[in-house]
Design a protein around this nucleic acid. Structure first.
Lengths: 137, 137
DNA sequence: TTTATTATTAGTAATGATTACTAATTGAGA
DNA sequence: TCTCAATTAGTAATCATTACTAATAATAAA
């Protein structure tokens, strides 16, 4: 059996940046930063690695109404998204009611709480059980 | 003072469709449906109205890793997103723990619960208080 | 009702983020 | 070291969304 994933300097640098920032960067921001150490790196390489790592679950991906945002924080947490400046702030999650009060005490204006469950629905799950097909992304 | 928002047949048809579907359609899907009643409607008109209504808060907008999704369900709820077929299912929200159990009983495979708070952060809120500038979207 | 004003529209071009593609490179097992 | 598939750099292509413009139509005022 051959290896499936290879360690590359590009991947290492991208992950290293994500693990040490709290800005939840866009792919472009990751690219701009990593380019300082690897001037030849390609934007496509950044996208490919970010998506691959998000797929593996070792980093987080956040969908916004503009660009993708990525997250290297390994501790379980949730997010506060500022709709004005698009800043994403990490939130230590306990329960929404308590958190809401905490946030408002902090000075943030919470307009709504969005809860999104991700996974696989009953139908897809069943389809997969009987007759395995590959993922159709 | 003049009026600000006008009632148009286009807007009415778009909202009517959203209020009577549970598929959380993409703009394209809204367009395809409304076109049956208004063959001359433009896709740009659909986008403009969807964004305008979401801005007003009378419909919901959901960001995915592909297209925008819109939601005309007026009852407060949360979402379950199937990562396989991208179907979005409405969830009556109480608290995440109870809901998680309910969902798994339903047969859905929940991989993670995403909680997103939306609003305006302390910094932006303060900036706005002293020296009002327009929104910079 | 008629007129004036201006938000809205249809149609289409432009934008911009993301992905696809390809020849060259390189990581890792043998 | 050798082999070979995974990965890369560079760039073209894709595609969802937005911008633009002349024409239209919804509303307020006459």
């Amino acid at each position: 059996m051959e290896n499936v994933h290879r360690e590359t300097v590009q991947k290492k640098e991208i992950l290293d940046f994500l693990r040490n920032t709290t800005i939840h960067p866009t792919p472009e921001q990751v690219y701009e930063h990593v380019k300082k150490r690897l001037p030849m790196i390609s934007l496509a390489t950044v996208y490919r690695n970010l998506n691959q790592m998000a797929e593996e679950g070792i980093i987080g991906r956040i969908n916004t109404d503009r660009e993708m945002r990525f997250d290297g924080n390994e501790i379980e947490h949730q997010h506060f998204v500022c709709e004005k400046c698009n800043k994403i702030i990490d939130i230590e999650f306990h329960n929404t009611k308590r958190l809401l009060r905490e946030l408002e005490g902090e000075g943030h204006e919470v307009r709504k709480v969005e809860v999104i469950f991700r996974g696989m629905c009953k139908e897809c799950s069943n389809k997969l059980k009987g007759g395995k097909n590959g993922k159709n992304k």
